[in-house]
Computed example of a mutant assay.
Amino acid sequence: MQQYTRERIEEEEPMFFLLKDLIECFECEQIIKGKKIKRLGVKIGVYQCDNCNSVKYGKEILEQEVINQANKFFNDILSPMFKEFLSRVVDEQASIHKKLEQELDRVKARLKNEIAQDLDILLEIEDVSDLPEAVVKLDQELKKITGSYNRMKDKWFENIETLKELNSFHDDFQESIQIIDEEMEETLIKELLEDIIQGIYAMSKNEVQIIFKHPHIEGMGGKEIIEFA
């Protein structure tokens, strides 16, 4: 009967690559894969580009650096200063939303009046192409403003919900906390990273850039650089 030592069991356990599908080689634009290699008789994990062999990073070192930067980004977007900034954004969006709503009402009223004036003509029309030019232009303007109004409303409501979550967070936690903890399950850590990382780019064997994104607010993020000796 084959004997399984502790060392053999540990060696056969699968290796979890936290940054799988997140790192791209800047030079060849290929996704960098996680690999297991043997060094001094011990299997270790690395992230290495298949095309650019010099682009290689130790698994544990790179993952820890990414987690450190991710926690800093979480602290930034959960900070009281960011809450104040978001509050100002919500107020500005409320003002824009109101102006668009008023403009929408004005165009609707003008279109209604135009239709009332041309009602006899409109009743005789058999094809849309025969509509009066004034009616067509007002209809196009109405569609344009409606589109802007709906897009602004969606962003405004989303930011309001984010602000509510931030207020709730600050009610529960008065000081900054570490969102990603080393005791967490690896799959949960990966989900948290995917929520805020737009991309990780291997610029060279000595430099990696992380592009962060806000999980709820479009167009808001940041960039961090990791340098290796």
Rank of each mutant, 00 (worst) to 15 (best):
V66Y: 03
I67S: 03
N68D: 13
A70K: 05
N71V: 05
K72Y: 01
N75C: 06
N75W: 05
D76N: 10
L78F: 08
L78C: 00
P80C: 03
F82M: 00
K83S: 06
K83P: 00
E84Y: 05
E84W: 01
F85H: 01
L86A: 08
V89P: 04
V90K: 03
V90Y: 05
V90G: 00
Q93A: 06
Q93R: 12
S95G: 03
I96G: 00
H97N: 13
K98I: 07
L100M: 09
E101G: 14
Q102L: 09
L104R: 15
L104K: 12
K108N: 15
K108V: 10
A109S: 10
R110Q: 13
R110E: 09
K112H: 12
N113M: 11
E114T: 12
I115Y: 02
I115F: 03
A116W: 09
A116I: 04
D118C: 02
L119Q: 13
I121S: 09
I121F: 07
I121A: 06
L122H: 10
L122A: 04
L123W: 00
L123R: 13
D127K: 14
V128A: 05
L131W: 04
L131E: 00
A134T: 15
A134W: 07
V136H: 10
K137F: 11
L142K: 13
K143N: 15
K143D: 05
K143H: 12
I145V: 12
I145C: 04
T146C: 05
G147K: 12
N150C: 10
R151V: 12
R151F: 15
K153G: 03
D154P: 04
D154M: 08
E158F: 02
N159Y: 07
E161N: 06
E161Y: 09
T162G: 02
T162I: 04
T162L: 01
